[in-house]
């Protein structure tokens, strides 16, 4: 229960942070593109959720086999 509450608080905090400083000229990439949250040695993460837990409409291809 506590974890659920903390997660929800963090989503709210993430949204507030975005509102304060995140919405710059790169907002589109921020919401819909790669999210290079980690340092050299790591490829870009594929979701914004990984960083801020923000429940935003990240446009990702469905998690399916690329053989298709």
């Amino acid at each position: 229960m506590r974890k659920k509450i903390l997660s929800r608080i963090n989503i709210a905090l993430g949204s507030a942070i975005f509102a304060l400083v995140g919405m710059n000229s790169c907002a589109r990439q921020l919401l819909y593109g790669p999210d290079p949250v980690v340092k050299y040695g790591c490829p870009p993460d594929t979701t914004v959720v990984a960083l801020y837990g923000v429940n935003m409409p990240v446009e990702e291809p469905p998690f399916t086999d690329t053989n298709e």
Binding site: K3, N10, L13, L20
Partner: peptide, 13 residues
């Protein structure tokens, strides 16, 4: 400051 708060929560999670 909000980020700090978020980070403290994240440490626990």
């Amino acid at each position: 400051w909000l980020e700090r708060w978020r980070r403290q929560n994240l440490k626990e999670l």
